[in-house]
């Protein structure tokens, strides 16, 4: 019984690490990637948002929207994962 529990916990921890890393990847790409490091490339090659170049828009609006979305998804994913542990 105890080993079954710890097996479950290990799986839970592994999955939550995977979720965390995926979320941090998106976080990094939208802020540091699109908005800072590859901003010029994004401005030149990606479609404009309204009348504003993509990289610039990401730095002032897009990243913030992405962050909010990420936290929403994280709360749902983790709640589901925690439920699976209790069953």
């Amino acid at each position: 019984m105890k080993s079954e529990n710890s097996e479950k916990s290990r799986k839970h921890w592994k999955l939550s690490i995977i979720y965390t890393l995926s979320i941090l990847t998106i976080w990094f790409v939208s802020s540091y990637g699109c908005s800072i490091l590859f901003r010029d490339w994004c401005d030149a090659n990606l479609p404009k948002v309204g009348n504003v170049p993509f990289g610039f828009w990401m730095s002032q609006q897009g990243s913030i929207l992405v962050f909010i979305g990420l936290l929403f998804i994280y709360a749902i994913l983790m709640a589901r994962l925690d439920r699976s542990l209790n069953n």
Binding site: W27, Q60, F67, L71
Partner: peptide, 29 residues
């Protein structure tokens, strides 16, 4: 700061919101 520095001011916009992603997935729970 955004008015005067334009694009450069984005560092505050992203910095002070993006930190919540780190805070939530790595720390507070």
């Amino acid at each position: 700061v955004v008015a005067i520095e334009g694009y450069n001011g984005s560092r505050y916009l992203m910095g002070w919101t993006g930190g919540f992603v780190l805070l939530t997935v790595l720390m507070v729970p």
